[in-house]
Design a protein around this nucleic acid. Structure first.
Length: 772
RNA sequence: GAGCUCGUAGCUCAGCGGCAGAGCGUUCGAUUCACAUUCGAAAGGCCGAUGGUUCAAAUCCAUCCGAGCUCACCA
């Protein structure tokens, strides 16, 4: 054995051993199953992925406890995220997604993902993860598509899916709508404009939307404006005079501004709701490219911000601005990805009605059929479920699972809007009828297709069918271009990962471990889909781990320059040290600070484990080789008298050691079974280092020394004590071995390396059992 | 506005009714000994504040102060 444990010399070999000897696969026993949260297929390992260690700990622990533990990995296509990355990549080449038709864009991204995937699995291997890589599932695999499309079809048939023109947060830069959860609210100061509006003055931060106003609202209790309610007022505006209705609505805050609000249903979520309540016209004046449209007269084509400046300027000239509050602080909704202001926009979207679907979810969580660790997340998810509203599942991006809806072309030529690149590589946009008439064939359109938009028509709806393949009925159909929100497919992760056989024995799975951040996005939806499709919970326990932050508790980000590359740490200090540093001394929830000093500390711990083994190994080998001699000299009476007392002391110490160990183990099992990994590791750390090494070994050494013995090599070993010493080492060794097993889930490499020293190259601690 | 969490050693945080703890850092000391990636020792604390429950409170309850997160709203 080397003086030091050198991870880089053994880790790779050990991992290969596990892999070659099928130790990554499930063995016989009672099933224990974890589905790995799928990282983005094109991702590379970041510090946060290190927390997957928690799942590896469970897998290894359960294996040692005799379970048939199975960890199934996978990767996610991560629609929006990936397309975003890819578009940045395109931008570097001076291109954009609009230069390609949909299919080509999809194929290019697909290739991009393939080229960049696989990296993260090799990094996971470096961390020692005992997952069955051969079983990896990708969220665009055939069987996943079947399930996901099947669920959609079922939901549509049963009335849980509807299409609606709804106001959604739309990022004009990223070109897609976002769910509420994908938005970020930031506090900001913007000018608040007080506009003269007929007989009123009203305050707004968005004067450029005034062309879309279809009412003015006041509070029902506001006496100041009572006489106007229900009447039309005449307003002088930038485009001339117009009449507008005054309505009353509780949403108005009498104290804010002048107590009068303009209602712009097409461009504000609250106004949209108000518009619904009062049956107002939805007048859209900003297109989805973020520019004002022809209804705004001279402002057509301007982007929102430019338009605002121009409108304000013109209003000033006309004397229509009373005052401007330059320091108005409010919060703005921005894109979580690019940080730009979101434009509340009306676009046709596919929705899932969640009112009925979420009821059983709340039920199983309240009844604790699914348990949360730490417990407080139960409250959080329940709170979130209560406010959960219908889920928009359409995304206007190419990289994803295309929604299996086909629109009938016939009779709808003027209702289906398309954009495509024609055979002369020209970009075309308009209704499908416009082009079919002009010698563009449907197949040409389909080939160059970028986007299909079918607005909601109240009277004559556009006929569509839900079908995975194009309907073969001789009629012309064109498929929806929207794709599913990534969470729609990853929400079905527990439904696509196991084999048919395994659904009988391994479902519900045992533990779902994930970052607390995605509790609402992912966990609640997995439960929802599972209860809907399988009438069964998808997992029994949810373990929420914490965010990995830097040593000062700051979130890691490139701009702050505090990003720590985990592989770097692994290369320098070993996978064990990295893993343990994420677990040791960390609490439940919040953040896990990752500091190099801590990794070093854990490296030292791994080395300590190694050296305790080395001590036992060196002395044991000596004894074994000399046992014969020693036995022959048993009757020697030399030192007999003086040996009596220390011998008894050693016996006593051993008894204490056994007692302490029994207590340690009992506690350990309790901690492990209640997912208190940090405490379990801390316990063994304390026991092995502070008690076993610093106290018992040191004590024994010094007592042997008082007899003129050093527990060292060959000739220096005095025979008189051998009987006692053999026992000493035997007992030390057993306690040590048990502790190796207990530590193995946390620091698999060093424990396995030591094991192999004692039991041979072909042995593995993973084949051992940790008994109660 | 609502909910949740956290204030414990210089730093990062465990502990969550029964002697105030760990890692890192600091100071002093040891060294042919399994390990200097080591060992021994020390300094460092009104456990955010106040009140309550209790034989006993860092721990439970209430209020307050401070920090953070999430959700909702904001013309």
């Amino acid at each position: 054995m080397d003086k030091k444990f050198i991870p880089s010399q053994v880790e790779e070999r050990i991992y290969e051993f596990w892999e070659e000897n099928s130790l990554l696969k499930a063995k016989n026993g009672k099933p224990f199953t974890i589905l790995m949260p799928p990282p983005n297929a094109n991702a590379s390992l970041h510090a946060g992925h290190g927390m997957y260690t928690v799942e590896d700990i469970l897998i290894r622990y359960k294996r040692l406890r005799g379970f048939s533990s199975l960890w199934i990995p996978g990767t996610d296509h991560a629609g929006f995220e990936t397309q975003y990355v890819y578009e940045k990549h395109l931008a570097k080449q001076g291109k954009s997604r609009f230069d390609f038709n949909r299919q080509t864009l999809y194929d290019n991204i697909s290739k991009f993902v393939k080229d960049n995937s696989g990296l993260i699995y090799s990094q996971f291997r470096k961390l020692g993860f005992l997952a069955d890589w051969k079983r990896s599932v990708f969220t665009l695999d055939k069987n996943v598509l079947e399930t996901v499309l099947g669920t959609f079809t079922k939901m549509e048939k049963e009335g849980y899916i509807y299409k609606d023109e709804y106001i959604v947060n739309y990022c004009t830069h990223c070109g897609t709508s976002l769910s509420e959860l994908e938005t970020v609210h930031v506090e900001r100061k913007d000018p608040l404009y007080y506009l003269k509006y007929g007989p009123f003055v009203l305050a707004t931060v968005r004067p450029e939307t005034k062309f879309g106003d279809t009412a003015v609202a006041v509070h029902p209790k506001d006496r100041r404006y009572k006489k106007w309610v229900g009447k039309e007022i005449e307003v002088k505006g930038l485009l001339g005079r117009f009449k507008i209705k005054v309505i009353e609505d509780e949403m108005v805050d009498m104290k804010f501004g002048t107590g009068v609000v303009k209602i712009t249903p097409a461009h504000d979520p609250n106004d949209f709701e108000a518009g619904k309540r009062h049956g107002l016209e939805v007048k859209r004046i900003i297109n989805i490219d973020g520019r004002l449209n022809e209804l705004t007269g001279p402002y057509v084509g301007l982007k929102v911000k430019q338009a605002r400046m121009k409108v304000v300027e013109d209003l000033k000239i006309k004397g229509l601005i009373e005052k401007i509050d330059e320091n108005y602080a409010h919060s703005v909704t921005v894109c979580y990805k690019c940080g730009r202001d979101l434009e509340p926009t009306i676009i046709p979207n596919w929705f899932i009605k969640v009112k009925e679907l979420k009821k059983p979810v709340i039920g199983v969580i309240e009844k604790e059929k699914i348990k949360f660790f730490p417990k407080r997340y139960k409250k959080q998810i329940l709170q979130w479920l209560k406010v959960m509203h219908d889920w928009p599942i359409s995304r206007q991006i190419a990289w994803g699972i295309r929604i299996p809806v086909w629109y009938l072309v016939k009779d709808n030529e003027n209702k289906i809007w398309i954009s495509f690149i024609d055979k002369n590589r020209e970009f075309k946009k308009g209704t499908i009828g416009q082009y079919l008439d002009k010698s563009h064939s449907l197949s040409e359109i389909k080939q160059g297709l970028q986007q299909v938009t079918v607005p909601i028509y109240k009277r004559e709806k556009v006929k569509y069918v839900v079908s995975v393949k194009e309907p073969q009925d001789g009629q012309d159909w064109i498929q929806e271009t929207d794709t599913f929100d990534t969470w729609f497919s990853s929400g079905q992760w527990p439904l696509v990962t196991l084999s048919k056989e395994e659904y009988k024995t391994r479902f519900p799975t045992d533990v779902m471990g994930t970052l607390a951040d995605i509790l609402p996005f992912w966990v609640s939806r997995m439960v929802m889909f599972s209860l809907y499709v399988k009438k069964e919970i998808p997992f029994k326990n949810v373990y929420l781990w914490s965010k990995v932050v830097d040593s000062k508790g700051q979130k890691m980000s490139k701009s702050k320059g505090n990003v720590i590359n985990p592989i770097d740490l692994v290369n320098r200090y070993g996978a064990d040290a990295f893993r343990a540093s994420l677990i040791f001394g960390t609490g439940s929830g919040g953040n896990v600070p990752l500091a190099e000093e801590k990794v070093i500390g854990m490296r030292n711990f791994a080395n300590k484990i190694w050296n305790i083994g080395r001590f036992i190994w060196m002395n044991r080998s000596v004894i074994l080789s000399e046992t014969k001699d020693l036995l022959r000299m048993r009757d020697s009476n030399k030192l007999r008298d003086s040996s009596a007392k220390p011998q008894n002391d050693i016996e006593k110490a051993l008894k204490n050691l056994q007692k302490e160990f029994a207590e340690e183990k009992k506690k350990y099992l309790r901690f492990m079974d209640s997912y208190k990994f940090s405490q379990a590791l801390g316990l063994v750390y304390e026991f092995l280092w502070r008690r076993f090494a610093d106290y018992y070994i040191e004590e024994l050494k010094s007592r042997l020394n008082t007899l003129g013995l050093t527990p060292r090599i060959g000739s220096e070993l005095k025979e008189e004590l051998r009987t006692g010493k053999i026992r000493v080492l035997d007992e030390l060794q057993n306690v040590y071995f048990e502790n190796l097993k207990m530590l193995h889930p946390f620091i698999p490499f060093v424990t396995e390396a030591v094991w192999k020293v004692f039991k041979g190259e072909n042995s593995s601690i993973l084949l051992e059992r940790l008994k109660s």
